[in-house]
């Protein structure tokens, strides 16, 4: 009985961590799908979301919902600015150059955040109190319910946007074939800007709703970004359920691994899954095979 209760708790806390990874992974997938860039700065938007909310809410004393909206707006503006200044001028650069630029961007954003808000860790208040909900003997925080809810809303919105709106379809077209998209009259450059806007807003949302649980500081973005990255790759870089499943798998296996095997190697688990998946099914668990382009 005790073991079952333990397993239930591992799974539940794994799922809640996994939802965080999924949310961050979705941001990676969106940019990758419309630009084929892996945006190493994605984790920094997660950090910005949390830190900006903290700044507006705690430092300026604004009402929390207003602080959240302002934080998302500000982080999105940073994302758009980054795309305009650093990504867009390099039209046809090699992917490796773009990777380095996003790495540079992440260092820069982190550095500015450090100068603005210092190096301390801060806690945001929970959105709906901090009394845990007990589910069959396993505890879960109301904040986790927020995370599940927001993830669900974002996937649905994504699905609607990418499959049922003109802009969304255009963005997907860009990822399949940029030249062909241009030929049929899609403004490719605008679509790339769009994808940066969407994914930085999403990163910020993720950062905001997880900050009450995980706390936030200028350097939280790196590891969260990498884990989100794993989720996206395992999910086959899909902008929907694939990445979510990837995130949840990583989260649950990490938690089970920490509980049943060794907590020291917990962080390695995400990357071992990543390697295994890459070697067996490089297109991800749920991705469709892609023909090699010559």
């Amino acid at each position: 009985m005790e073991l079952i209760e333990q397993l239930l708790q591992y799974t539940l806390s794994g799922l809640s961590t996994g939802a965080i990874y999924a949310l961050i992974g979705l941001g990676f997938a969106i940019i990758y799908n419309s630009t084929s860039i892996i945006n190493f700065a994605q984790g920094e938007f997660v950090m910005l979301g949390g830190m900006l909310t903290l700044f507006f809410h705690v430092t300026l004393g604004l009402y929390l919902p207003l602080a959240v909206v302002l934080a998302i707006a500000a982080a999105t503006a940073v994302g758009a600015l980054f795309e305009r200044l650093a990504i867009s001028p390099l039209k046809d650069a090699e992917p490796i150059i773009l990777v380095i630029i996003t790495i540079g961007g992440s260092i820069l954003i982190r550095g500015v955040a450090m100068l603005l808000w210092g190096k301390d860790t801060h806690a945001l208040p929970m959105f709906s109190g901090d009394d845990p909900i007990i589910l069959l003997g396993a505890a879960i925080m109301p904040q986790n319910i927020w995370i599940f809810g927001v993830t669900l809303i974002i996937i649905t919105a994504n699905r609607l946007f990418f499959h049922h709106s003109v802009s969304g379809k255009a963005m997907r077209a860009c990822s399949f074939n940029r030249i062909a998209s241009r030929l049929v009259g899609i403004d490719v450059k605008r679509m790339i800007l769009f994808s940066f806007i969407i994914s930085s807003a999403m990163g910020a949302v993720a950062g905001i709703i997880i900050a009450p649980l995980t706390m936030t500081s200028y350097d939280v973005g790196v590891m969260l970004g990498l884990k989100g990255f794993c989720a996206a790759i395992i999910g086959g870089m899909s902008t929907g359920m694939g990445t979510v499943a990837g995130g949840l798998i990583v989260g649950v296996l990490e938690s089970l691994g920490a509980g049943l095997i060794s907590s020291g190697y917990k962080d390695a688990i995400a990357f071992i899954i990543l390697l295994v998946i890459l070697l067996i099914r490089p297109q991800g668990l749920f991705g469709k095979g892609e023909a090699e382009r010559v």
Partner: peptide
């Protein structure tokens, strides 16, 4: 004898194991 990482977001798993 449990361990957590400096950037971990959640230590529930380790604590559950300790509870057991």
């Amino acid at each position: 004898d449990e361990i957590y990482g400096p950037n971990d977001t959640d230590m529930t798993a380790q604590l559950v194991k300790i509870r057991g």
